[in-house]
Simulated scan of single mutants.
Amino acid sequence: MKRILYILLLITAVSFSQEKDKAELLALKKANDYVYEGNDLIGKEDFVLAEMAYRKAISEKPETIAGMYNLGNSYYEKGAYNEALFRLQQAAKTAISKAEKHKAFHNIGNILMKNKQCKEAVEAYKNALRNNPTDDETRYNLGLAKICAEEQKNQDDQNQDDQNQDQDKNQDSQEDNQDQDKKNDENKDQENEDNKDGEDKEDKKDKGDEEDENGKPEDKNKDQGKGDQEKEQPQPQQGQLSPQQINSLLEAMSNQEQKIQEKMNEEKQKGVIIKTDKDW
């Protein structure tokens, strides 16, 4: 009984495998048909319908290298380099044979050169030569890619040097501005200090003048101070006697009294009294 059951399971498995193989073969046949259709449309320069045919081929059998590769090439012919690069990278990743990988990497290098990605193109051509070292066209493209990559490197270095020089110039300019600001601040501080010294000297001068006005002359010139005192003595107003006039009058009166006294003494001697009137 067990033996019969085992035989039935084996028959079922074989039948299922055959059906799966038939489905895969059918899908592969359809995919190849779509690839052929796409190739025919490319020959007629009908890129839109060709793209649709290649997409159908990939849909029927995703690992169809011809569909990915030819779709990528169709994008390349249209100038859609980013889409072409994506499809060819898919083809290179999926490919099994070295011939398929070589073609995919070679065209990837061509697309990268179109995009001015020379350094990346060098690596793509190297991968192509690893799968087919005898391809002279790939070797020639690799030489061009190396020259292009070296020129780009030199240009990048020059741009970096220019950028560094600009940064150095900007830094020097900032330092010069800082030095100028510092010098301006020092000049301003010195100017403020000079103004302060001038104000102190002016204050001392005003204080000295105030002391002179308060009757405190400088010791170094007494005669000049005395003359200033005399000049600063108040002048008599109209109708009043000056101190000198008063002194002179007092002196005259004293002399007059002395004369009168002498006369009185003489009159006493004669017995006659004389009265005097003061006119002041």
Score class of each variant (00 low, 15 high):
1 M>D: 10
4 I>E: 13
4 I>G: 08
5 L>I: 13
10 L>M: 12
11 I>D: 02
15 S>R: 05
20 K>E: 14
20 K>V: 06
21 D>P: 00
22 K>Y: 06
23 A>K: 14
24 E>H: 03
24 E>W: 02
26 L>D: 12
26 L>V: 04
30 K>W: 08
34 Y>G: 03
37 E>F: 06
40 D>W: 01
44 K>M: 13
46 D>K: 12
47 F>A: 04
51 E>C: 04
51 E>Y: 00
52 M>F: 05
52 M>E: 14
54 Y>N: 00
54 Y>K: 05
55 R>E: 11
55 R>D: 06
55 R>L: 11
57 A>P: 01
59 S>G: 05
60 E>Q: 12
62 P>V: 01
62 P>A: 05
65 I>E: 01
65 I>N: 10
66 A>I: 04
68 M>P: 02
73 N>F: 08
74 S>H: 04
76 Y>E: 06
77 E>G: 02
77 E>Y: 15
80 A>R: 02
81 Y>W: 09
86 F>L: 10
86 F>D: 08
87 R>C: 04
88 L>D: 05
94 T>Y: 11
95 A>I: 09
99 A>K: 14
99 A>W: 02
101 K>R: 11
102 H>L: 09
103 K>F: 07
104 A>L: 00
110 N>A: 11
110 N>F: 03
111 I>P: 07
111 I>Y: 05
112 L>V: 09
112 L>H: 01
115 N>C: 05
115 N>I: 09
123 E>M: 04
123 E>I: 15
124 A>E: 02
129 L>D: 04
132 N>T: 00
133 P>M: 00
135 D>K: 04
136 D>W: 02
136 D>K: 11
139 R>Q: 04
141 N>M: 11
141 N>D: 03
144 L>G: 06
145 A>T: 00
156 D>H: 06
158 Q>E: 13
158 Q>Y: 11
159 N>I: 12
159 N>C: 05
160 Q>N: 13
161 D>L: 14
162 D>G: 07
167 Q>S: 12
167 Q>I: 10
169 K>E: 11
170 N>G: 05
170 N>E: 15
172 D>W: 03
173 S>K: 10
173 S>C: 03
174 Q>C: 03
177 N>C: 02
177 N>F: 09
182 K>A: 12
184 N>Y: 03
188 K>W: 00
192 N>Q: 04
197 D>G: 07
202 E>D: 15
203 D>I: 11
203 D>V: 06
209 D>R: 10
216 K>E: 08
218 E>D: 15
219 D>C: 03
228 D>A: 13
230 E>A: 14
232 E>I: 02
236 P>V: 09
238 Q>R: 08
238 Q>G: 07
242 S>I: 03
247 N>T: 11
248 S>H: 09
250 L>Q: 13
251 E>Y: 01
251 E>S: 14
251 E>C: 01
252 A>N: 09
254 S>I: 09
256 Q>L: 10
259 K>E: 14
260 I>F: 11
261 Q>A: 14
262 E>F: 03
263 K>T: 11
265 N>I: 04
270 K>D: 10
272 V>A: 08
273 I>A: 08
274 I>R: 04
278 K>M: 10
